[in-house]
Design a protein around this nucleic acid. Structure first.
Lengths: 220, 220, 220, 220
DNA sequence: GATGAATGAGTATTCATTCAT
DNA sequence: TATGAATGAATACTCATTCAT
């Protein structure tokens, strides 16, 4: 619930609110959630201290807003990507697309991880997003299993989750925490590992080739 | 700076210190680093508040001690494991051994992750341990590349890091954060993915070590 | 200082003002003065936040308005009551009338008490009203003393004040704070106590009976 | 619950605690509960800000402590008062004793009244003390009814409560809020009113005289 | 070594009031 | 008149660390 503001915002109001959200994201990126001070946010947004609380109930609430904008942006890159092509191309495409989105938001991804370590709500929020992504990947695996490109004894959900964890955590360690030496090479390696892990590098079992027209990605 | 005591401790002293470390680990596991209070630790250790500072300079310092004991314990399980056997058996063995260690320490692993999100020192500590583990895996990959079991174009370090990230993060999500449904099945999947990702499921090219390019088959 | 508007209000204006006063009273009754928020009042009155300050300078000022309306209402019940009858009937009548008024306004009486504990102005306001009531009762006592119905050594002002305090505080404790069990019985007891305290239960000294035609109440 | 301090206090500790309680009472008396600042209390007690929280969880908790000491002190004056004497003398004695205690604690009584207007807990605390006092008075009334000195149709509990309210509120208005002009005269009037209200001024019904040897007071 | 009392800097949040449209 | 966004002073409470016995 937002204090004071019951209905919709005036133009001036929504502009102020936007300034605060932008400033908040910058501050979070610079010092993390724990060390962020509301006063830093308001100073940067050029509003009075109290103005913050005209739009948000707490530091946590702005963070939620920033996190949701980020998740929306991360998903946006996916659009129109799942058209035809070889499984290998699809996997590479999906990975690159995720990589690019991660690159744009690396610092915030790290902060969300931070908050998730002590805040149950954010753990769930992240969990939901992860689950949605895993579901999509598992769907692709299942289709490739039906067309014979992937061994049928692989558990689609677990495999999707594990490969997702690999890509996610690799990007986290490279982009969000460590410094990247050669991201290009890392992505190539991830492609290779995913493709081989799923067995997509193998010849298609004859007679079933080309069945899988619509495919999805192995990650995010 | 170490407070008062550096090298030698009397028998009573070292017992007191041990009680504090044990209590600290319990408290950290129960409430996390951020919410742990020095008073909780001393109460549980049955020592006076001030006694804590006779042995440790700060909350961070006990945490470091606990973390180091944990890393030592995690590595301990590894000993004498990398003897002969098929690559597949080796991978499985290593994964199981890591899984078991993780299971024993899941809660503390989560707390270390928490601290690593805001403390540079612990980020490095964890990084060093990860690097050691990656080095060992990379060494194995390199050996298998020389013997022709793994494609030579795979970057050993990056592959080792990525697969390590997969296992680590999967266990983190399953054991440390979420609830585990079927760990056995998860481990089987991880084995499968690692083995196939590295190409260890394929036949060894006869007499042509180091050139496994052509050694592809449709064998399952 | 009155904001903007002093004397005349347009029809719309006075209706708005009235809505605010009504809403304010409701809010004060529900949560007390300290916990009442200007925003609650404006929301309930269906006016914009700022509109409040078009009509009132402060939260204190609406409260004063509400309190004055309440005092006026409390006194209103008294009208046309002070006609003949035995002193006993007069006392009973006055007590009942005050009780009924209190019953209608119990919650606000409690809130006024609250404000009087920290606001000098309201302490005086309440004091003035109390004094007026005490004056009337003291007048009745004096008349009854002259007619020999009440012992002449009783201080009329102090007795009036003390008996007023008894009735006021009893109603406060029963109606405003505690829950009422049997108000009828309480009122009977108060009547009894007042009548006996003043000595009105005794035989009238012969030859002066009936002198006191017009009497006033012992309370309110 | 008190923070940090689990067991009993050291000599130094209990001295510090006492300093804080004393300072708190002074500050409450000077500015009331609402306007009292923890920093005022610690400054006056010559301790650091944080020291306050070594002994108390909140401002409310010190207030409770001060209030309880006060109630204990108010009751203390009663001791050894309930020996023989005429009912009239007993009533006078009890009233004087309560008056003197009130005089010593007038300011704090006003502050407790303040807090009781917005804090349910204190309302109950005060209520309990009032009830205990009412019980004692009602007991005396009942005994005097049995001995025929008081009319049997008077409800002992309600009468005790109402007369208690009279004395309490009169002292509150005179001592705690207004300035006292002539307390002696007020007390005489209260005595008179109580005695007559109960009918203790009347001749004892023949044949039952002297029955009531041990009596209690009509107030506090 | 052990004790536990003392310290005080640090900060999110509230809300009456002002004021630009 | 009416609106509702903007303001910012004010304050209780936490807790790691210090230090006198």
């Amino acid at each position: 619930m937002t204090p004071l503001l019951t209905g919709s915002l005036t133009g001036r109001g929504s502009r102020t609110r936007e300034r605060i959200v932008t400033a908040a994201r910058e501050v979070f990126e610079e010092v993390g959630y724990l060390d962020a001070r509301v006063s830093q946010i308001t100073t940067r947004a050029h509003v009075a201290y109290g103005t913050f609380y005209t739009y948000f109930d707490s530091k946590e609430e702005v963070f939620r807003e920033v996190a949701e904008q980020l998740f929306a942006e991360m998903l946006g890159g996916d659009r129109g990507r799942r058209t035809g092509g070889t499984p290998l191309a699809l996997v590479r495409g999906a990975n690159r697309s995720y990589y690019e989105a991660y690159l744009r938001n690396a610092r915030m991804m790290a902060i969300i991880e931070q908050v998730a370590t002590f805040n149950e709500d954010f753990r769930e929020l992240r969990s939901r997003h992860r689950a949605a992504s895993v579901r999509r990947t598992a769907g692709a695996i299942r289709r490739w299993q039906r067309s014979g490109r992937i061994a049928p004894d692989l558990d689609p959900e677990l495999a999707a989750a594990a490969l997702g964890a690999m890509i996610d955590h690799s990007l986290y360690l490279w982009l969000a925490q460590g410094g990247v030496a050669d991201a290009e090479r890392l992505m190539d390696t991830l492609d290779h590992l995913v493709v081989h892990a799923l067995g997509l590098d193998k010849r298609i079992s004859p007679g079933r080739a080309g069945e899988s027209r619509v495919a999805e990605s192995a990650a995010g």
